[in-house]
Design a protein around this nucleic acid. Structure first.
Lengths: 205, 205, 205, 205
DNA sequence: AATGAATGAGCCTTCATTCAT
DNA sequence: GATGAATGAAGGCTCATTCAT
C-alpha cells in the first residue's frame, strides 16, 4: 500500500509538486514562528523556490494561510467520513466523531497545531466566507448522519447547540494540551476513555 | 455594594487611572484587529494619550499584551477561589470549576475572547516563564483543594492528565462557540447542564 | 467606401490582426490606468493572448508604447496631408493645420488622449531618437508647404519659434479641455472659429 | 527686500524647514526621472532624512505629488492676483492673464515643468476632488474679475468654453515648447507679442 | 511624567522579462 | 509562432521604538 500524505491527497499529480513543497514549507514556518511572524522570505528559503512562484500559486500570504487550513479541514473530514461509514448506532456515531478527531490529531500533529492557530486568521481574513460555507457543509453532513434511518435514538435531551461541545469538548481540550506539551500521552491512547466519557455525559444515569 | 470592574480590581487606586485606560483601549483593539495587526498608534488613539506614555507604563507592546493576559488570569482565579470557598464535596468542587469558568466568560466576554487569542503570543513571547509559573501555581492550588481533608472521594478512575479536560473541555468548547457567534445562548444558561455532564463523564453508570 | 480604422491603416492585412488586437487593448489600458500603472498582464487579459505573444511582436513594454505613439502620429500626419493637398493660399494653409488637428482629435479621441499622455514617456525612453527624427520631418514638411511657389505671403511678422504656437495653441488647449471633460462641445464644432482666431492673431488689425 | 522662494511662501516658518526640504528634493527628482520612476528612496537621499519622516509629513507618495502640485498652483495664483490688482480694462485683464502665466513659467521653470507633468497623476489620484475644487475656485475668481463693475466690454463674441483657450492657448503652447527645449527664447521675451495676439484673436478686424 | 517627531529595518507585493516546452 | 510558469530585483509603506524637549 503506497503511502499517501495529506498534501498528496489534496493536490495530487506531479504538476502540483511545487505547490505541495510550498505548502509543506509554509506549515513548518507558521508552526515554528506563528503566522504573522513568518515572512514569505522564510517560506521561500524553506522550499527553495522564488517569491514569484509563491504568489503565482497562492495569490498572497492570506491565500497560503487559507489553502493550508482548507487542506487540513478536508483531510480531517475524509477520515471522519471513513469512520462514519462503518458506524451504525448512535453510540457508534459518537465513537466515530471522537475517534476520527483524536486519531487525526495524533497522526497529523503539525496540521492539527496549525488548525488551532490559524482559525482566527482565516475567519477574519478574506476567505471567511469560504470557511463559513465549509463549516456549514460539515455540520450538515454530521447532522444528516445522525438523522439517517436506522441510526436509532436521537440526542434530544440537550439543546442542539450544546451537543457538539459535549461530544468533542474533552477531546479537543486534551489534544490542545498534548500539542502544547502540557500532557505526554498521545490522544489516541485515550480514545476509548474519551469516547465513553462523552457518551456518559450525554446520557442519564 | 460598589461596582468594581476587572481592571479596578487588578490596578486599584486613582494613580492607576491612565494605566487602566490604556489597558481597556488595548483590549478593544486587540480583540477587533488581532494582536499583531494592532499598532501602538491605534491604542494611543483609542485612549487619547501619547505613544511615550504607553511605553512608560508597559515597556513595550509585549509588556502590554502580557499585562492584559495576566490581569484576566488573576480575575478568573479570584472567582474560582470564591466558588471553591463555598464548596465541600468533590462534586461541589467540579461544580465550582465549571461554574466559575462559565460565569467568568459570561461576565467578561471581551477578556475571555482575549485570553483565547493571546495564549499563543504570551507563551511564545518574553513573558513565557512568568506564564508557566502562574499556570503551575494555578494547577497546584486546584489539586490541593481536591486533596484537602474532608473533600472525600478522589477522581482516580482516570489518568491525571485526562481529568482537567473531562471537567472543563465541554465548557471551554461551548464558550469558544459562543464568543465566536456560532451559538446564541450564553454559557451561564447551561452551567448546570455542563456541570452535570462533566460529573457524569467522570463516573460509572 | 470601406471603413478603415486607424490601426488597419497602420498595420494592414490579415496577418497583422493579432498585432492590431494587442495595440487596441494596450491603448484602452494605457488611457484608463496611465502607462506606468498598466501591466502587461492587463493588456494580455484585454486581448486574450499570451504574454509571450506580446513580447514577440513588440519586444518590450516601451516598444508597445512607441508603436502606439507612432501609429497616432502617422495617422494624424496623413490627415494633415490630405487637407494640405486641397489648400492654396497661406490662409488655406492655416485652416488646413487647424482643421486637420481639430478634426483628428474629434474623430480619434482615444488616440489623441494617448498622444498627450505618452509624449513624456516616449521622449524619455529608448525611442526618443526616432521621435525626434519624425518631429523634424513633420516640421520640415509643413515649412516646405508654406514656402511652396504660389502660396503667397509669408508669416514673417513673428519669430519663427512663435508661429506654430500662435496657429495651433488655442486649438490644442481646447482639445485638452475637451478630452478631460472640462468643456462639452466637440472641437470640430469650433473649427472655423479657432481657425479664424488663429488667422487674426497672426495679422495686423 | 528679502528673497522669498515659492516654498517659503507656501510653508512659512522654521518648523516647516524639513517639509520644504523634502518638497524641494521631490521636485527635482520628479522632474529628472518622471513621477512614477522616482522612488521614495531617491527623494530621501536627496534631502538627507528618513523614509519615515517623508511619510510622517505627507502620508504617501501621492500626498507628496499633490502637495507639490498645489503649492505650484497657489504660487501661480498669487502672481495672477498681483497682476489683476493693477489692471482696469478688459484688455488689461487679458494682459494680466498672459503676463502672469508667462512670467511665472519664466521665473519658476522647474515648477512649471512639474505642473505640466503631474496634472494627469493628480487628477486621477486620490486628491482629484481637491484639485477639482481648486480649479473651480480659480475659474470663478477670474470670471468675477471680468464681470467687475468698471471693467467694461465683455468677451461675449465667443462661447464661454472657448475664451480661456483663445487667451492662454498660444502662451501655454510656447511655454511647453520652451520647457522641452524645442525653442530657445524665454516666454517672457514674447509676453507682449503673445498678449497682443490673444487680444487680436478675440476681436473683429 | 508626558509628548510626538524622527528613525530605519524589514515586510508584502508587483511586474517586466525570460525560456523551456 | 505561441504559451505561461518561473524569476527576483525593487518599491511603497508600516510600525515598534527612541529621545530630545
Amino acid at each position: 500500500m503506497p503511502v499517501t500524505d495529506l498534501l498528496e491527497r489534496s493536490y495530487p499529480g506531479r504538476r502540483a509538486e511545487l505547490k505541495r513543497d510550498i505548502l509543506r514549507a509554509a506549515l513548518g514556518c507558521f508552526n515554528s514562528n506563528g503566522i504573522e511572524a513568518t515572512t514569505i522570505e522564510m517560506i521561500r528559503l524553506a522550499c527553495d523556490t522564488s517569491v514569484g512562484a509563491i504568489y503565482h500559486h497562492f495569490g498572497n500570504k492570506e491565500g497560503l494561510v487559507a489553502a493550508l487550513f482548507f487542506a487540513a479541514m478536508s483531510d480531517q473530514a475524509s477520515l471522519r467520513l471513513r469512520y462514519f461509514e462503518e458506524a451504525e448506532t448512535t453510540k457508534d456515531g459518537v465513537n466515530a466523531l471522537v475517534f476520527s478527531y483524536v486519531d487525526w490529531v495524533d497522526s497529523q500533529p503539525e496540521w492539527a497545531r496549525y488548525q488551532f492557530n490559524a482559525g482566527f486568521a482565516v475567519s477574519n481574513g478574506p476567505h471567511k466566507e469560504e470557511l463559513a460555507e465549509r463549516n456549514r457543509l460539515r455540520n450538515q453532513q454530521v447532522q444528516e448522519w445522525f438523522l439517517r434511518p436506522g441510526v436509532g435514538e436521537l440526542l434530544t435531551r440537550f439543546p442542539d447547540e450544546l451537543v457538539p461541545s459535549l461530544i468533542i469538548g474533552a477531546s479537543e481540550s486534551y489534544c490542545r494540551a498534548w500539542l502544547s506539551g502540557r500532557v505526554k500521552q498521545s490522544p489516541s491512547a485515550h480514545r476509548q476513555v474519551l469516547a465513553d466519557a462523552a457518551w456518559r455525559s450525554l446520557n442519564d444515569v
